[in-house]
Design a protein around this nucleic acid. Sequence first.
DNA 1: AAAAAATAATAGTAATACTTTTAATATAAA
DNA 2: TTTATATTAAAAGTATTACTATTATTTTTT
Lengths: 230, 230
Amino acid sequence: MQDLLKQIQIRVNEKIYLKDPETSELGKRIIQESIRMIDEIGLESFTFRKLSEKLGTTESSVYRYFENKHKLLIYLTSWYWGWQEYRLVFNTANISVPEERLRIAIRVLTETASYDDLFPHINTQILNKIVICESSKAYLTKEVDQEKKMGFFAGYDRLCERISEMVLKVNPLYKNPHTLVSTIIEGIQRQKYFIAHMPSFTDILKDGEELTLFFTRMALIMTKSNGKNE
Amino acid sequence: MQDLLKQIQIRVNEKIYLKDPETSELGKRIIQESIRMIDEIGLESFTFRKLSEKLGTTESSVYRYFENKHKLLIYLTSWYWGWQEYRLVFNTANISVPEERLRIAIRVLTETASYDDLFPHINTQILNKIVICESSKAYLTKEVDQEKKMGFFAGYDRLCERISEMVLKVNPLYKNPHTLVSTIIEGIQRQKYFIAHMPSFTDILKDGEELTLFFTRMALIMTKSNGKNE
DNA sequence: AAAAAATAATAGTAATACTTTTAATATAAA
DNA sequence: TTTATATTAAAAGTATTACTATTATTTTTT
């Protein structure tokens, strides 16, 4: 099983990069170190110059992989959502009770996965922190419409679609599966941020079971409530 | 009544600006034009140079009001939440049925208010668009913790607090009023963005009543569901 | 062994995000 | 009304950013 899984690679839309970072040593180091660095100093202060200095390479070498740091951010978040999709599929395989599947889906989204040794150059735990703090900057731009069309957010899209389907399995009459699911996914990230930095916006003291319960309840109760309480 | 209301001013934390833009003609023009400009070209492309050129003044004059564009963004979003708080209080005054108050609160948050002639230099409709696209960038930074301490987000905080109190009036036993309210407020903005730019993340085709209903249902159903469905 | 691709080293440019200095103008207090 | 004070305008300067370009060197593939 381990050996089989070693073949797995998270696919990312080719248009996001100039050269696939998975195909070279330098490419992998760019990913590895940029995750560390963005987490440490924040996206705003992060530059390709600083990154290349840390890597002992040059700016122009980094530019051969990514057009700019915006594309790199899109790459990292796309990879993350691709990885989450893989975790979702893996964890819900062989579970047939719709409600149970949905519960597991929310758990996959809320639980901070520990280091995933299938991807040794990607620290998924730190990457999750980046997703919490920086991922919305990837689409809150003037270029969204084109980038959406080019499929830059397709990974996130697929994840949202899969969970929406699970919602519909629980209640085929439910009218707003996508709205609910995207509100929950975004809400999870935001609440994790509030817990860490703006505690007056939440009642939850630390990232953990309570957060999972809150969003699990939201998912189930909304899904099953169709049409009532208007 | 009109005359009385003319006295109203939205208060913004003094530490956000160097000189209060409300106290001079240039200050008001800075606010007016920056709203227009950020909406038009986006926060990333917006610079104090471009703003001052448009205003027929100089960069250094703009810098006397705001330390940098980040502070200006915080000013604009703070003003917006202060204004929403005022709208909330105004619209829920004299309504005593808790559930009805909460319904109105959600409506205030979802409905795009038309031009508010109490504030002639602030186009609240465009400002709302800025809040949707740019406001999260105001706190998703490495400086949040200090800025939170300095009360830069106090306006948003108060709004969240007020609505949380309404939730508790509906169900005093409800455990997560702040988590619910902040998830809803953030969710509303995000859904409006998805409707406009990333329709695959929502089932709602256009900003309107359907969005209000979705979040009203979420508010009421979650508030009243305490403890069940875990 | 030759050809192609990738990387390193170096330099350069336009724009950004400011800061500083000085001069002109408006306003408010004595 | 004068004087002090604050405000704005004009101009210039600096460090950093976000790239692009050129050439040389090394590595990989054919």
